[in-house]
Design a protein around this nucleic acid. Structure first.
Lengths: 131, 131, 131, 131
DNA sequence: GTGGTCTAGACCACC
DNA sequence: GTGGTCTAGACCACA
């Protein structure tokens, strides 16, 4: 997995796990990969995975059975969604709006860019599925 | 000047200088404060100012006359705007769009929020002006 | 390591690292010494090493894996060579040629000097090898 | 006058004066521009001119009549030429040869570049004369 | 006066 | 362990 250089890797792993849960790949009470396995898969130090799991555990997205591993919490999906929405509303959105006003850009100016982004993403996803 | 704790101070100083240029307070070929003066004014170590100036010099926003000081470059304003736009298009926008798709939000869903943001901002600005 | 006093130390360290890469001592994707280690080895403040590494990173000669260290970039060797050639063509050569014309010296006048330089250098290198 | 950014301005002024003497524009015992005049002409701080004149005086290229100004010394031209040759032989040439060997360039490889440099320079000089 | 460089030492986030 | 940032304070060349 490629990580972008600006965000801490453990944050990017938190997102990686979250996405798997949101997309229904890892469901309620299902076991998620062990720290060690995921470390190997993502080519990352196990400590970094640990830190991500720790964060998610504290957020009640996953829970730990000692000696067995980590599992998706009963309402893990909801917790993720609530958390993301909260962050989005209170942090991302105001920051983004501020940038827009500073650069004198209207929301409607972005529609073409957004549609382009969507179509690009679709192409990429299709390619992934056929691989 | 108050600095937020998440971003490096020297980056915030880069923005500080940029804003002064964008707002027309420091114009083309005009001298900007000396490293030491700005250090005192912003209550920061001169090295930190130096680092910010170094960055801006390399970006061709300001230039240095040895023994005299730093000056706003001929097209410093344009360089700043181009740089900001580039960052916005290549980094901020994709990140934001990705979040939108992940949360299944349409651009049009944000219009009310944006208008609210704008009216809030206007009120704040008005209050500033009357102070 | 002995530094000459005219050039900034961090520049001399940039050259030091470049030479190691050029001479094949540090190869592609190989880890180079940590900032602290090299600081101790060269008897220099870590900040000074940092500054050199920063410069080389920006030039795409080395890259950073966070928390792990710096590594020689995929095409670090080529970047160095290109950079040196560029400097030579655009800066050194014109300066040198200007001096030649000012002193009314032809390129051909230098051949004897150059051959003498080469033979002197060879003798020195041989002595080094037998030591 | 435009100064390059790497060399100290006072050194570039030393060269400027030297060139005038070498090219026969300022002859033996002829008065050269006053510190103040040259400072205005070259758009430079008078101190900087002073420093250059001081250097040239110490080298016996020019001499000072108090209250009147600076004059080209009896054998100023020779001193300049000797000085330049000494620097060239002992410093510039070895440095340049070292670079050549490091970059595996033969002296003969440079002939085309040198001829191009000469023709470019001629064109520039002609344009200057017609102005 | 100006900026450029360097040191010593500290704190921090991250891996 | 890694590098990134910051401070305090010093020295220097240059204008």
């Amino acid at each position: 997995m490629k990580f972008n250089s600006t965000e801490p890797i453990y944050v990017q792993i938190v997102n990686y796990v979250s996405e798997h849960i949101v997309m229904g790949k890892w469901n309620n009470h299902e076991k998620i990969p062990s720290v060690r396995d995921l470390a190997i898969r993502l080519e990352v130090n196990p400590n970094t995975i640990s830190r991500a799991y720790e964060f998610l555990e504290q957020l009640n997205v996953i829970y730990n059975k000692r000696g067995i591993g980590f599992f998706v919490a009963e309402d893990g999906l909801n917790v993720i969604n609530d958390y993301n929405k909260k962050i989005f509303k209170n942090k991302d959105l105001p920051k983004f709006f501020l940038k827009l006003t500073m650069m004198k850009i209207q929301l409607s100016d972005l529609e073409d860019d957004f549609n382009k982004f969507l179509s690009d993403k679709n192409k990429l996803d299709e390619r992934h599925q056929t691989e």
